[in-house]
Design a protein around this nucleic acid. Structure first.
Lengths: 219, 219
DNA sequence: GAAATTATTGGACGACCGTCAAGATATTTT
DNA sequence: AAAATATCTTGACGGTCGTCCAATAATTTC
């Protein structure tokens, strides 16, 4: 038997390990789906297995324990959405276009991946209680902050303005905004998405060094 | 036996109901403490009872079920911190003084009540999965938003400026900022509190209609 | 102070949990 | 094809969970 003892060291044997990590990914995907549906507190290994093609015992063949599986899910999340808005900032040619594209991307992600996002906020809250989660959560949070900052840096460049805020402040503001919108969206508030987009535009207008006279500047 | 069936209707008999709700408060306080220590996912009724003077069986005498108890805790939280920053906005005479007092209050609450705050973010995440929690969580969120807006309204008044943002945007930004700082604070980052205070000041400066030339205006 | 009511205890219940290991099955190696 | 290895299933283990209930204790009522 190889089991978890295969570690990451056994890179040379290629095919066998590849299949091993591939099945790990498959099971982690089932776990992410289950976590996104039920939340961390209500998710059990048996429930995860039922969302996969295997029985519950196999999880301990591919993962050391439950914490190991959760960690793998968290890293899965990271890979999924860390470059989500890069295309917007790269293709936009005016500040207004960037704002429009960013607001639209946020709205689309909110609508289409609400379950995944609530899982993120759930796991981040768990990290406040469980030190074992903190390192991975902090790393993802840092990547998300960098992702937001790439958008902001591009915005300041297009507006020919000096950055007037810090990366941490920018991320905190947009994250707070998105989180509020997600909560309202999941509660069935019809205006949740539109309200968020309006707030995003308001926020961009407030960020530039002086007043909102950028509209249509270079379009 | 009276138990939960006493409802809230039985107001006239005074003494008996008062004792009943008083014990409810006592047990809810033990529950809040336990939840703040362990988080929602790891908190059991037996653990709560061990943090009180009673045995685990008594919880079903004062609460219908676990959800009923959690609800009561949530309302407890609401009563605790919904007027926390009012004294600051009422006593401040200049925009700078308001910013200083508000930033200091946020920092103090972060340091002294970190466990309670992480409980709030945990329960708010649970509300995204459990519809039964949503109404109460949304009500508290609304109260917190109103609390923040009282500070902001006072800020705009002292600065003799028109409000340039909405209550929901203001709350989302400060909430996001506080949440980020809490996560870093609980992770042991020494600069967490100071960084938050710096970002709060930066945020206030960005909020006024035009540029940061309000410093020392009327002090 | 006896009776009635309220308050509290502590154990039992079925269900579910994470974990584990023995055995069955599938795959690869020889 | 047989042996060896890798993969997967199944059922069991001890533990904890929310819930319930008969008993006991404390308090109030008459």
């Amino acid at each position: 038997m190889v089991s978890v003892a295969v570690e990451i060291l056994e890179r040379e044997s290629g095919g066998r390990v590849d299949k091993f990590v591939e099945r790990r990914r498959e099971l982690a995907q089932a776990a992410v789906q289950t976590l996104a549906e039920l939340g961390y507190a209500r998710t059990s290994l048996r429930e995860i297995a039922q969302n996969s093609a295997f029985s519950h015992g196999v999880l301990h063949y591919y993962f050391k324990d439950k914490a190991d599986l959760i960690m793998c899910c968290v890293r899965h999340y990271k890979a999924h959405c860390v470059t989500r808005y890069d295309v917007v900032s790269e293709t936009s040619r005016t500040p207004t276009a960037l704002i429009d594209g960013f607001a639209e991307s946020l709205a689309a992600s909110l609508r289409e991946e609400a379950q995944l996002h609530r899982l993120w906020y759930d796991l981040r809250a768990q990290a406040m209680f469980e030190p074992a989660f903190r390192a991975d959560i902090a790393e993802i949070d840092g990547n998300l902050q960098a992702m937001i900052w790439r958008v902001m840096a591009r915005y300041f460049a297009l507006a020919a303005a000096e950055p007037s805020i810090t990366p941490s402040l920018a991320y905190a503001m947009f994250d707070g905004l998105f989180q509020q919108a997600l909560l309202k969206y999941l509660s069935g508030e019809a205006r949740a998405v539109d309200d968020m987009q309006a707030d995003v535009r308001l926020l961009f207008a407030r960020i530039l060094p002086c007043g909102p006279h950028i509209a249509g500047a270079a379009s």
